[in-house]
């Protein structure tokens, strides 16, 4: 157990915890764009930057990413110092120039107020390169998409921009995307994503689309589920179960 100071208040922290974890647990607001508690931090957006120092640092300070920086005994953190606010502002201004179409960015910018206007990108892309989709896909084990290219050409794509071979159409990437950049089109029978079309398994009871066939096969193979696991949708499962319990209690 270590003790750290955030905005002049003392907090206990576990060894190996990040500044962001300690702050969030104690309701201290640090804005983030690329952080997700279920995924490993990457430090891409830099919005979570905070200023740190230590008692024996002779007054020198450092700006670090709260989502990555592991706490150490006696760490002193400022979440709203002049340097922090200035960098946060610059990050938002830069993102406003990059993807003005994205609502997340626009909302944050409204909240913080835009200061400097930079040359605007006009490609209409909403992607802020937060890597949430890439990390989620990797975590699920598919690695169907990744960050490709360099510099401002950086984007999320399947290998060689071909249709994503190892994609199973689970749709996690599109769901986790904070800006709605990833295109996923569902009809009653099929789902189209990353240039591929997937057929749905429909619920035995209500006939609604349940899961793509490819995802079902992938999940059954990798998660040791019973073969009939994906036959009834969760809504129907629930009503079936509640009916069951209702009968039991009679």
């Amino acid at each position: 157990m270590t003790q750290i100071l955030i905005d002049n208040r003392k907090f206990n922290a576990e060894e190996g915890e990040t500044i962001l974890e300690v702050a969030r647990r104690n309701q201290i607001d640090i804005p983030t764009l690329c952080h997700h508690e279920a995924l490993e931090a990457v430090g891409a957006c830099r919005l979570c930057t905070v200023e740190i120092t230590g008692e024996d640092w002779n007054g020198s300070t450092k700006l670090v990413s709260a989502c990555l920086y592991p706490v150490e005994e006696g760490l002193i953190v400022q979440t709203r110092s002049e340097g922090v606010l200035r960098l946060r502002q610059t990050v938002l201004d830069l993102l406003m120039a990059r993807c003005p179409e994205s609502t997340v960015i626009r909302d944050l910018a409204t909240q913080h107020g835009q200061v400097t206007e930079y040359q605007q990108f006009t490609d209409g892309s909403k992607c802020i390169m937060c890597y949430l989709c890439v990390r989620a896909c990797a975590k699920l084990g598919c690695h169907a998409i990744s960050a490709v290219n360099r510099g401002t050409l950086k984007e999320v794509a399947p290998p060689f921009h071909e249709h994503a071979e190892s994609c199973v159409g689970c749709g996690t990437c599109a769901t986790i995307c904070p800006t709605g950049h990833i295109e996923m089109v569902d009809t009653a029978e099929t789902r189209t994503i990353w240039k591929r079309e997937f057929e749905f398994v429909t619920c035995k009871v209500c006939g609604e689309p349940l899961i793509t066939k490819a995802y079902r096969d992938y999940a059954l193979e990798n998660r040791r589920l019973p073969n009939d696991y994906y036959t009834v949708c969760s809504a129907c499962k629930k009503s079936e179960l509640s009916g069951h319990f209702a009968r039991l209690s009679l």
Partner: peptide, 15 residues
């Protein structure tokens, strides 16, 4: 040559 991962580098150098 910027890897393009973090905002200050990718967008900042561009600007």
């Amino acid at each position: 040559e910027s890897c393009g991962k973090c905002v200050p580098c990718r967008e900042g150098i561009f600007q």
